[in-house]
């Protein structure tokens, strides 16, 4: 499966923002869960990632937990969120 340019950009953003030592872009499967399983991110990472999306793309996430869960499910859903809502 090919990775889009935006997905690659998001991988780099995740690695840099969350200081994932020993993780490379190739280690992040766009379909795998980002949180708990798969990449294994935690709730602090979710907050940090939300902040990074706001800074980089101007996206403000609603405080609704269910929609955040869907947006943050995996890299593909995150890319779809950025695609749809970015203002910069």
């Amino acid at each position: 499966m090919t990775t889009t340019a935006l997905e690659h950009e998001l991988k780099e953003l995740i690695i840099e923002t969350l200081e994932l030592e020993d993780v490379t872009a190739d280690d992040i499967d766009p379909q795998e869960p980002l949180f708990v399983e798969g990449l294994g991110l935690d709730s602090i990472d979710a907050l940090e990632l939300g902040l990074a999306l706001q800074k980089r793309y101007g996206i403000t996430l609603e405080s609704d937990a269910e929609s955040s869960r869907q947006h943050f499910a995996n890299l593909k859903s995150l890319a779809a969120l950025v695609e749809a809502r970015r203002v910069k």
């Binding site: 990472d45 907050l47 706001q54 800074k55």
Partner: peptide, 10 residues
């Protein structure tokens, strides 16, 4: 005027 990093705060 930037928001605080949650990880840094924690």
């Amino acid at each position: 005027g930037d928001p605080l990093s949650p990880a840094r705060f924690g």
